[in-house]
Write a protein that binds this DNA or RNA. Sequence first.
DNA 1: TATGCAATTATCCGACCGTATAACAAGCGG
DNA 2: CCGCTTGTTATACGGTCGGATAATTGCATA
Lengths: 166, 166
Amino acid sequence: MPDRRPYRREAEDKRREALISAALDLVAEGGPQAATVRAIADRAGVTPGLIRHYFASKDELTREAYRRLMERMTDDNAAVLDNAPTDPLARLAEFVATSLRPPVVDPVAVGLWAGFLHNIQRDAAMREVHAATYLGYRDLLQSLIAALPRAADPDQLRADAIACNA
Amino acid sequence: MPDRRPYRREAEDKRREALISAALDLVAEGGPQAATVRAIADRAGVTPGLIRHYFASKDELTREAYRRLMERMTDDNAAVLDNAPTDPLARLAEFVATSLRPPVVDPVAVGLWAGFLHNIQRDAAMREVHAATYLGYRDLLQSLIAALPRAADPDQLRADAIACNA
DNA sequence: TATGCAATTATCCGACCGTATAACAAGCGG
DNA sequence: CCGCTTGTTATACGGTCGGATAATTGCATA
């Protein structure tokens, strides 16, 4: 009865968002080992139990956080095309240049990526998330290459996109 | 109370080597979280207690493992100079090309580097190891640049080396 | 204002972490 | 062949991990 922590009910989206971004912050700062359920909940301003109310397991939260990270990176990268030159070659050049510069690749993003790397290798579900976002990125790259003046057959196109990405 | 695990006494160097390389293997495979004292000892064929007989703490073992990794990478990179062309520019080109190709940079090495990244950021002693090996590498790079035909003052030399490394 | 639902907190659990310490035995110098 | 040193194993401890479950309470609805 005494001294129970007061709280506010929040929308599901808001809580999930808070938990995901808390997890990303912690992974960026201290690596995977720092992103414990207790630390994540603490940073999100809730108690640890709530995590399992919104996510089936910590692994699922980790996957969602990684998905969020990848989406943010590809979106940041794609955003440069909004006010890019119209010349196809210049567009492609701008795109790949952006993909190697902040904010899509900066110390924080690299730290995050490093933190998730081994999860990707070990967890199959994580690999799916990785594959999904990667394919989306490659398709975008491929469409830019396809817009290039020189003609090319589809197979060559895909190979070029892969090579360019590497 | 028999049934005690039989064992052989080994030279200190051998044990330390086994423990360090076991730690590196585990970090490469499963990230920092997989390199527990028990897992390391198990892979090295000993019992966990022995780790603290050779290292003051797990952190010290981690530092030594990281030092070993960095030395191996820089040595692998420097090895290319043994049978490299004599032309200064070609030597430099060969050196930086090697520094971006296997075996100095390959999936395993990247995984290792990712596994240690956050330790470097957090642990001051770890940063010293990092700084030491990095400076050695930069000096080597600088000496290659210095051998270039065009003249340059020392300050410019150092700046060039840093830029080249980035 | 009273009531019910569920979002949130609180507490407990088994497993594993790194570490400390004690018991044991391998192998060398006598 | 026999002690002695010390490399090695065994066991225990406190802490934290992710997860499960019970208790509480915010809040929308009637």
